[in-house]
């Protein structure tokens, strides 16, 4: 009688323990920007050279043939401006976003996780813009949608 009781108690204790894995953390330290055609409202494939003040990648971040991009936000600032230089043309767009930085410890064995909330626009040069996701996490596939011709 004593042995099953001990096994049952141990099972209850272990079942209450969290199973942590750094990969199961939902929080993201970047926002997801999606591009749309203003007229058709369809996803638009673009090629941009992206830059921002303080951006580590020096001359910027190049991407082509993409309808979406993940861009980092600076934890030390409350807003950030990205410049999008269209590759092959002289068209340039700017987007300034404000946000709140949040830091949490998901598990002591994982690095601290940065995520951002209260995403909002300060100004932009795209034709239209929407923010369907004001917080950066894995549950959302889009934070910012921009529409342009």
């Amino acid at each position: 009688m004593k042995k099953p009781f001990i096994i049952l108690s141990a099972a209850i204790v272990f079942s209450c323990n969290d199973i942590e894995n750094c990969d199961t953390n939902d929080q993201l330290d970047f926002f997801i920007l999606r591009f749309y055609d203003l007229d058709t409202q369809d996803p638009k494939k673009v090629a941009f050279q992206t830059s921002s003040s303080g951006f580590i990648y020096g001359e910027g971040f190049y991407f082509s043939d993409s309808t979406a991009i993940g861009l980092p936000l600076n934890p030390d600032e409350a807003s950030i401006t990205y410049q999008f230089d269209s590759v092959g043309t002289d068209v340039t767009h700017r987007l300034t976003l404000s946000y709140q930085t949040n830091v949490s410890i998901f598990d002591p064995d994982c690095p601290p996780s940065f995520y951002y909330s209260n995403l909002d626009t300060v100004n932009y040069t795209f034709d239209s813009l929407a923010i369907p996701g004001t917080i950066t996490n894995n549950q959302l596939t889009t934070n910012v949608e921009v529409y342009f011709q």
Binding site: D29, F30, I56, P72, L73, P75, D76, V103, P111, P112
Partner: peptide
């Protein structure tokens, strides 16, 4: 208090919260 040195896309920097 949290002290962290890491790269959040803006170079390896010290972050204190």
């Amino acid at each position: 208090q949290l002290d962290y040195t890491g790269d959040q896309g803006f170079g390896i920097l010290d972050y204190d919260f």
